[in-house]
């Protein structure tokens, strides 16, 4: 049961809100107190577009307790178009269709349910951007 975590992270989970440095313009996701680039402490909120490409990916076959009923599933490192890398699940795609460099976009989807009677947690996942048709 980690409701405080989900309440605290709602701007990240639903809107990909990170920070941008007011001194050097460096973007961060998750949000930072101190700029990793110039060490400035002047960071203001910034919502990322949610569009990017797959940098690396894996299919998970053995997992942690709360994701046990979802295996196998795909997770990836995604390079957002603003130049920030993010870790997330991939959705609406099969493992043999994923490749490095594939364009993806953020969607809000179910993460997991806390037991049969507990709350359902939601947040960002990424799906392929339809091309061609």
């Amino acid at each position: 049961m980690d409701i405080p975590r989900y309440w605290r992270l709602k701007d990240q989970r639903y809107r990909l809100q990170g920070t941008v440095c007011e001194d050097c313009g460096h973007y961060s996701f998750p949000p930072r107190l101190v700029c990793p680039n110039c060490k400035s402490k002047r960071q203001k909120p910034f919502a990322f577009s949610g569009k990017g490409t797959v940098f690396s990916f894996t299919t998970i076959y053995q997992t942690i307790e709360r994701y046990q009923d979802q295996v196998p599933y795909l997770v990836a490192l995604i390079d957002l178009e603003e130049g920030v890398r993010i870790t997330a699940q991939l959705t609406d795609v099969d493992s043999d269709e994923v490749e490095i460099g594939m364009p993806v976009e953020m969607v809000v989807r179910k993460f997991y349910a806390d037991g049969d009677n507990g709350p359902i947690f939601y947040g960002y996942k990424f799906r392929p951007i339809a091309t061609g048709s």
Partner: peptide, 17 residues
């Protein structure tokens, strides 16, 4: 907050690498 609670395992992180 930004890896494990999204479903990442320790093996998965090494697999991404």
């Amino acid at each position: 907050d930004f890896e494990t609670s999204l479903g990442l395992t320790f093996v998965a992180l090494n697999a991404l690498v």
